[in-house]
C-alpha cells in the first residue's frame, strides 16, 4: 500500500453481546468497542432509536437502561451487557399504546417525530418515579432532549396529560371526537416499512 495511514477503527476483538431488549433476550456479535446505539439499530433492529448527533446533544437516541434514561450514543454496548434495555418499541403494553404515546399524538407532542422516541423515554422515566410532576419538573426531565418543531410547549402538555391518565384522574384517551375507533392504531398513513426492510 505504500503510505502509512491511521485506521479509523482499531480492529478490536469481537464479543458476543447480550442484553434483554424490550423484555426479550437478544444476542449480537459486535466489536468490543461498539456503541450501544449502533448495536441497537444495526444488530438488534430497533430502528425506533434515532441517531441525531452522535454527541449526546440531541437526546434522540435515549433508551431506558434498567428504567434509567441513558443516551445510547454515549454508551458502549459492553457497559450494559446483560441489563434491561427498553426502547420506544417496548413502550406499548401489548396491543395497547402507553398513555404517554397516545398523549403525544393527541396533544401535538410529535410533529416531524424524529425526536419523539427520545422524548418518550425521558418522559416515561419521569412518570415512573414522579406521578404528579409540575411543569417545571417536566422541563427538567426533558432538558436533554432537543426538539426543533414543537417549541416544547405541546410536549409538556402531552406529558402532563399522560401523568393524569396514569394517576387515574383522566380516562385513558380514546382518540378525540372519534365515533369510529380505528382498529389499526397506526392511523391512515401507511405505517409499514418499505419493501425489502429486512430486519
Amino acid at each position: 500500500m505504500g503510505e502509512e495511514y491511521v485506521k479509523m477503527t482499531p480492529l478490536a476483538a469481537h464479543t458476543i453481546w447480550s442484553a434483554v431488549v424490550n423484555g426479550q433476550m437478544k444476542q449480537a456479535i459486535a466489536p468490543s468497542n461498539a456503541i450501544l446505539l449502533d448495536v441497537l439499530r444495526d444488530e438488534v433492529g430497533m430502528l425506533g432509536v434515532k441517531r441525531g448527533c452522535d454527541l449526546g446533544t440531541c437526546g434522540c437516541c435515549a433508551v431506558l437502561i434498567d428504567g434509567e434514561p441513558r443516551l445510547s450514543c454515549l454508551c458502549l454496548a459492553g457497559q450494559v451487557q446483560g441489563q434491561n434495555i427498553t426502547t420506544v418499541e417496548g413502550l406499548a403494553e401489548g396491543a395497547h399504546l402507553a398513555p404517554i404515546q397516545t398523549c403525544f399524538a393527541t396533544h401535538g407532542g410529535s410533529q416531524c417525530g424524529f425526536c419523539t422516541p427520545g422524548f418518550l423515554m425521558s418522559a416515561e422515566a419521569l412518570l415512573t418515579v414522579n406521578k404528579n410532576p409540575s411543569r417545571n419538573e417536566i422541563s427538567c426531565a426533558i432538558e436533554g432532549n432537543l426538539c426543533r418543531c414543537t417549541g416544547y410547549q405541546q410536549i409538556i402538555d402531552s406529558i402532563e396529560a399522560a401523568a393524569a391518565i396514569k394517576r387515574g384522574e383522566a380516562p385513558a384517551l380514546p382518540p378525540a371526537s372519534n365515533p369510529h375507533p380505528n382498529p389499526h392504531p397506526m392511523g391512515p398513513e401507511e405505517p409499514s416499512m418499505p419493501p425489502g426492510h429486512a430486519r
Partner: peptide, 17 residues
C-alpha cells in the same frame, strides 16, 4: 377540529421510517 396528525401513531411507536 383539533386532530392528532394521522401519522403520529407511527411516530410514537417508533415505526415511522
Amino acid at each position: 377540529k383539533p386532530r392528532a396528525l394521522v401519522d403520529s401513531y407511527a411516530k410514537v411507536t417508533g415505526q415511522a421510517w
